[in-house]
């Protein structure tokens, strides 16, 4: 009887168990991608419906959260392509990161708001890697798969993204006169 596939009800039960618990995580990632609550909800909705449709391709027992985030990034690329109708041949943010000079100390007296604001200031391609690694705790391998980039690129973007973040936070500290910072290596 192996020829028979599972029923709709069984498919829903499996989907509800495997995929649905990750919806809050997906929403978080969607907010980073869209920077807008309504668009984030749209992206989550699109992702979940796509995941439901493609659920037969999901291999049970593997990382469902990474699978869902991969779908979300793919949909987001399409969304951006539709919006901009541009194909990026060169990533200008890569060049920007090359110009980050050094990392001053990061203040201890940071608020949640200032950390999130600084993270938002990190250019998109670096922020994606920092968020996926440091906030969502995906492995390098999973991030490489989600973003469809080589592992080496994940590592370099993470390195640069973190540096930019630390620099931004140090800049905020200078601006608001915070002292007694967490020292960070220079150079």
């Amino acid at each position: 009887m192996g020829w028979f596939r599972e029923s709709s009800e069984e498919k829903w039960e499996a989907f509800a168990e495997e995929a649905m618990p990750h919806m809050p995580d997906l929403y978080r990632v969607a907010v980073w991608l869209t920077k807008n609550r309504d668009e984030a909800e749209d992206l989550v909705q699109e992702t979940m419906f796509q995941a439901l449709k493609s659920f037969h391709r999901y291999e049970m027992g593997t990382n469902c959260r990474a699978w869902l985030v991969t779908i979300m990034y793919n949909l987001n690329y399409k969304r951006i392509a539709k919006l901009t109708k541009l194909k990026l041949v060169d990533d200008p943010e890569e060049r920007l990161a090359e110009t980050v000079p050094f990392e001053p100390s990061v203040p201890e007296s940071l608020t949640d708001e200032s950390i999130i604001a600084a993270l938002k200031d990190v250019p998109d391609s670096f922020r994606s890697v920092v968020v996926l690694s440091d906030v969502e705790e995906f492995s390098y391998k999973e991030i490489a798969s989600i973003l469809d980039i080589p592992m080496g690129t994940v590592m370099s973007r993470l390195y640069r993204g973190r540096r930019i973040l630390r620099q931004t936070l140090a800049g905020q500290a200078r601006e608001y006169g915070f002292g007694g910072g967490l020292r960070a290596a220079e150079g």
Binding site: V106, L110, D112, D134, V135, R162, L165, L182, R183
Partner: peptide, 16 residues
């Protein structure tokens, strides 16, 4: 330096 980086990483997660 490493303690500061690790602290920042934790703070990011907590803040979000």
């Amino acid at each position: 330096d490493f303690a500061a980086r690790r602290a920042l990483r934790s703070r990011m997660r907590e803040a979000v």
